[in-house]
Structure formats: structure tokens, C-alpha cells
């Protein structure tokens, strides 16, 4: 047996899109190893979500229990590690989201497994499947082998097209949960959601991002984003200043995006920012400094004050609609 276990994520009553990209990565590993793809779904009151996931043609293992209401790594890790053992998983993966990065290393520790983060692709076959991943803020690509019997990984969602629904759904199995809530030493005490009507940053077709050059005024950035139906991103400088939510940071240590169009306004183009957006199809830079490093990477560079250029572009977009 050489099965692949993909850990699913859900929110607001739906399977998260990131999981579909991770399933596609799992399917690719299964092709290389001759195994089968299974999915783990943990939570409380999951209802129809298991069937939604099984529609992708994978066997779904559902652990539905009050103690799993919140994705606490301390509670999730033992359930996932036991499941991986029970189905004979040789590969355990998830999307490289905050959730995946939080939980999967703990699963790896339980399985005495090595782990690769933010995997971009695979090589080789059978037990020798290798993993391609970025290092040094994406300045370097590494091909790595995981030397342990079980191999754990998270995948960069932008590198894998989402899995497609299959003709026949996979089977759904219930997983018994024996975690004692009283023994848990982690307690969830609140969540402040950053509400947004805009598309999810990592899934958006267009991203408009602002940096320190906005001086805290993101209105022109947001107006252009809304005219384009785009998501809003930001550099670390803008987030650190408290101008916009953390969740908007694009880069080495923030989100990685690869939209059709990325507009960077008032962003200098530091290597740590590029690490998060250089996979974009078309990059536009608006910066008033003609020597800003971002112009070395942008497909189209406009040397201008963003407070003039962005409203003009927004007006143009609206007029042409």
C-alpha cells in the first residue's frame, strides 16, 4: 500500500479551494507511486461536506466531534497521525496555508517523518518521489528527497490546478475520535475575521497591491481593485504600519499569489515581496522612482505618482466596461 492522505480544510460551510489544489498534488503523487488518494476531514457538525469532498473521487475519512470544532494543532495531530497509520499512508499532505503549516509538522513528528514545506512540484517515481521547493525567499529552487518511510508535505496552491469532480464519488468512512477535551492544553478564545466582499487573495484573477508609497491611504488601491473585481494585497511595510490587515501581506512570509494580472503601486520590489508575486502572468508597477527595483521585473512600468495614476486607470477601466 502506498496511499496519499490529503488533509482538507473547510470554512463557512464549504471545502476551501486551497484543498482542491492539494488534492490535485495528491493525485499527482498517487500517479507516481501507484497509490490511492484519501482525504481527511476533521471538524464538528460537518454534514454535507464529506459528500462534497468525496465528489472529487477520493475516499473521505471524516472525524466529526465537538473537540475538533476548531483546528487546534494539539487535537488534530493525533487524529491525523492515527488515520495515516490506519490507511497505510506513505505521503501526507495539505495546502501550504496557515492551517497546513500549523498542523502538518506535528503530524510529521508523530509519524517520525521528514517534511517539505511549500512544494512546487514532484519528480521521480515510486518510493523515490522527490519534491521541488523554494528556499532563500525563492532565490533558490531545491530538489529534496525525504528519507523517512512516511513523507509529509504542504503544497503551494498556485502551482497545482484544482482537482476536478470525478464521475464516481469516493466512499465516506467515519473515524472514531478518542481525544479527551479535558486533557487539551490549548483553548480557542476568539477569532476576529477580516471580512471582505472581494475575491480571496490567493484565488483572484487580478490583484492590486499597495505599499509604503500609499502613505496609509489605500483608497486608490481599493477603488481600482473594485473596478477590476480584484483582490487587494500589500507589502510588509504597509501591513507593519497597521494600515491594512496582516492577511493582505504578499511575500516570502505572507501569501503567495499568481494571478493573471498583478498591479504593484508604491511598492519598491524587495526580494521578499517578489517571492510572493513573481509567478503572476502580467506584472504592472506604478512607482514614482524610475530606479525602483520593481521595474526590473514588471512587464509594464509606469513612472508616476500613484495618487494620480491609479484614479485615472480606475476611470479608464470603468469607462471601457
Amino acid at each position: 500500500m502506498s496511499n496519499v492522505l490529503i488533509v482538507a480544510e473547510h470554512g463557512a460551510g464549504a471545502i476551501r479551494k486551497a484543498t482542491l489544489h492539494a488534492l490535485a498534488a495528491g493525485q499527482e503523487i498517487a500517479r507516481r507511486t501507484g497509490g490511492q488518494v484519501h482525504a481527511a476531514l476533521l471538524g464538528k457538525g460537518l454534514g454535507p461536506l464529506a459528500a462534497d469532498l468525496a465528489a472529487y473521487g477520493v475516499e473521505v475519512h471524516v472525524a466529526d466531534a465537538p473537540v475538533l470544532e476548531r483546528p487546534l494543532a494539539e487535537a488534530f495531530a493525533p487524529v491525523l497521525a492515527d488515520l495515516a497509520k490506519a490507511i497505510g499512508a506513505t505521503h501526507v499532505g495539505a495546502a501550504a496555508t496557515a492551517f497546513g503549516k500549523d498542523v502538518l509538522p506535528r503530524v510529521a513528528a508523530r509519524l517520525e517523518a521528514g517534511m517539505a514545506t511549500e512544494v512546487l512540484g514532484f519528480g521521480g517515481d515510486g518510493a523515490n518521489v522527490t519534491f521541488r521547493r523554494p528556499m532563500w525567499a525563492g532565490n533558490v529552487l531545491a530538489e529534496v528527497e525525504i528519507a523517512t518511510a512516511v513523507k509529509v508535505f504542504t503544497v503551494r496552491t498556485t502551482e497545482f490546478a484544482p482537482a476536478q469532480r470525478a464521475a464516481a464519488p469516493g466512499a465516506v468512512h467515519a473515524v472514531a475520535v478518542s481525544i479527551d477535551p479535558a486533557a487539551l492544553r490549548t483553548r480557542h478564545a476568539g477569532f476576529r475575521e477580516v471580512k471582505s466582499e472581494r475575491p480571496e487573495l490567493t484565488e483572484a484573477r487580478v490583484v492590486v497591491a499597495g505599499g509604503r508609497g500609499t502613505k496609509g491611504d489605500f483608497a486608490p488601491i481599493e477603488a481600482l481593485a473594485d473596478a477590476l473585481g480584484a483582490a487587494v494585497g500589500a507589502s510588509r511595510a504597509a501591513v507593519d504600519a497597521g494600515w491594512v490587515p496582516n492577511d493582505w501581506q504578499v511575500g516570502q512570509t505572507g501569501k503567495v499569489v499568481a494571478p493573471e494580472l498583478y498591479v504593484a503601486a508604491g511598492i519598491s520590489g524587495a526580494i521578499q515581496h517578489l517571492a510572493g508575486m513573481k509567478g503572476s502572468k502580467v506584472i504592472v508597477a506604478v512607482n514614482k522612482d524610475p530606479d525602483a527595483p520593481i521595474f526590473q521585473f514588471a512587464d509594464y512600468g509606469l513612472v508616476a505618482d500613484l495618487f494620480q495614476a491609479l484614479p485615472a486607470l480606475t476611470a479608464k477601466v470603468k469607462a471601457e466596461k
Binding site: 517523518a113 521528514g114 517534511m115 517539505a116 522527490t130 523554494p134 528556499m135 525563492g138 532565490n139 533558490v140 529552487l141 531545491a142 530538489e143 529534496v144 528527497e145 525525504i146 528519507a147 523517512t148 517578489l274 513573481k278 506584472i283 524610475p290 521595474f295 526590473q296 521585473f297 514588471a298 512587464d299 509594464y300 512600468g301 509606469l302 513612472v303
Partner: peptide, 19 residues
């Protein structure tokens, strides 16, 4: 447990034009 086999540099992104 994780063995790096080979490092390479990603293809550089070429700058385009100024408008």
C-alpha cells in the same frame, strides 16, 4: 530526514517596458 539533492536558480523574470 530531508536530503537536498540539488539546488538551482529559478528562471529570472525579465523586465518589460516602461509606458
Amino acid at each position: 530526514k530531508v536530503v537536498v539533492k540539488r539546488l538551482s536558480e529559478p528562471p529570472a523574470r525579465k523586465g518589460g517596458v516602461k509606458v
